[in-house]
Amino acid sequence: MKYMMLICVDGAERRQQVERRSPEEAAETMRRIGAWLADVDGRGVRLHGGELQPVSSATTVRLRDGQLLVTDGPFAETKEQIAGYDVIECANLDEAIEVASRHPVAQWGSIEVRPLVDD
């Protein structure tokens, strides 16, 4: 079963964190995310994934009555913003929860775990 992990963080909090943290702290976070990736990739659990640029870089695209509507920003203004995603393959939800709970961001942000529709 494939699950999408949406890595969510509070946008304002994230900015503050990034501004306030020392280079050592930043390096430590990177190291822990690296360790998580090494684990899930090593076990073949993660199929793909990646980190997203800040929400300020987002563009929303709609097509209505044949007309293209392009706007700046995300389609919904929410406090929680998606900072990254991972698609994982697990036997069941408990396994997926286990994988998500070990992601470093689970300690300050939140991770939405959603099953993909079977193909």
Partner: peptide, 10 residues
């Protein structure tokens, strides 16, 4: 069913 919550003792 959809999220595959397992039928198991944790």
């Amino acid at each position: 069913r959809d999220a595959q919550i397992p039928f198991q003792v944790p």
